[in-house]
Write a protein that binds this DNA or RNA. Structure first.
Lengths: 241, 241
DNA sequence: GCCGGAAGAATGTGATCACAAATACCCGGC
DNA sequence: GCCGGGTATTTGTGATCACATTCTTCCGGC
């Protein structure tokens, strides 16, 4: 009997989808799929702060082996989304007043600029601008019903979708990456705070942002985004300290 | 003979230093040591853009096994310091005009704020303020001799040391992390540009920053840092486009 | 002399095992 | 009922192997 051939059991390689229809491009790369899904769950606020995580449990949950799970976890720890205790236990990062302060400053600096970039980038392109506005309006509409029904989960998800739809239109991957890292650290708390205090009604800011996008007013857009961030972070700050 | 016990050869666990004197705290964790060393090398501009990297070669270079090397590489790819080709080859990230633009904006937004935070944090603490100033002055002095002798390597190293000495005094880990990620993407180019164009004389900005720190002038400090960034990035931008 | 392609080496990724440390669990004593 | 301590389990980390691809190299045909 040959001594090798250890790879038989294999936790289902194709489980996470074979990259949809495009078998053309690169291989699946399981660990990126795991990372993407976990990141989305955190940004959308589906995991509460302090919730424990482990390499093996995450691997089991996603039906993959330990290796992709630990790589995804490693990345999220590096980005500040996950926290490691002194004894190397992993959990969703917890909030502190100091972190609220830092996140508020970083977000209010970067996100308005990203929004303005999206505006400027669609300057000559009426078609692209219209597409962006209609997509954001659609999300905003769904956001309204989430607020009306008090659906905290949907609200979190749609809120992040609203912001990133705008930010991604800026076509600025470095800034976007930085901002994503900040959302990874705020996401869990938005959800927690709203579960306690109820869904906020910041929709004014969203409407202002859409209006500014329509009129092409960069300053108004900046202010709308900034105010949205400040109000959201104040909510978190009030709950933390 | 027992069939297990495969771990014998082991690439020298204590090679990278047993964390100095503190055997009190947590275990060594080889992959963090590898990450820290590689990150420093990149920020200091010791690795030129496009330079190839591989898991196994990095492991061999640091006398560790493949596992810590790949974890360090994974993190640096996530932070934008390393680039992956379509065929999964790893290299030091290359620069594009668009990236220069983004990095300039992000850095001019974040770094001056970090500097001001360092200023504010040492407001009441005359002792801490003095220590900070003297440390920065000492680095600046060594920077002068590096400029005088045209030592590009030392210049890069000392320049990053100067900035991060200031930024770390802000005690703002989230902002610091974001800024480090940006330096990881600029480091290799500063070095390249200076190798071609020679060592720049931005020391004025450093002197202004120190002076602002002494006088407690936040606005002057902000401007000094901003100008230093803009001049440096313009140098890179001129070489890239 | 030059080109194309095949053989060989190298690479990223996934899987699995070993191990020390930390946590969880349980059981007996009071 | 509650606590303490010892055992069993879980955990992160490192090491090693397998494998499909990709890159390199070199050689034979023209």
């Amino acid at each position: 009997m040959p001594p090798n051939k250890k790879k038989s059991p294999s936790p289902l390689r194709g489980k996470l989808g074979n990259r949809g229809k495009s078998a053309v491009r690169r291989a699946p790369v399981i660990h990126e799929e795991v990372y993407a899904r976990l990141r989305r769950a955190i940004i959308d606020g589906q995991l509460e702060p302090g919730r424990a995580l482990s390499v093996r449990s995450l691997a089991a949950q996603f039906s993959v082996s330990a290796m992709p799970a630990r790589e995804a976890i490693r990345r999220l720890v590096a980005l500040g989304a996950l926290e490691m205790t002194a004894t190397r236990r992993i959990m969703i990062a917890r909030m502190t007043p100091a972190k609220v302060d830092e996140l508020t400053e970083a977000r209010t600096l970067l996100e308005p600029r990203l929004a303005v970039r999206a505006l400027k980038r669609t300057q000559g392109r009426a078609r692209a601008r219209k597409t962006l506005i209609s997509r954001m309006t659609a999300i905003d509409k769904r956001l309204d019903s989430a607020i009306a029904s008090g659906d905290v989960g949907s609200y979190s998800k749609l809120n992040s979708e609203f912001h990133f739809t705008l930010y991604e239109a800026a076509d600025a991957p470095i800034l976007l990456n930085a901002v994503e890292s900040l959302w990874l650290q705020t996401g869990p708390f938005m959800r927690t705070v709203m579960s306690n205090l109820g869904v906020p009604d910041f929709v004014d800011m969203h409407n202002d942002a859409i209006a500014a996008l329509k009129s092409g007013d960069a300053e108004e857009l900046e202010n709308a985004v900034r105010l949205d961030i400040i109000e959201g972070m104040q909510l978190i700050g009030g709950a933390v300290e």
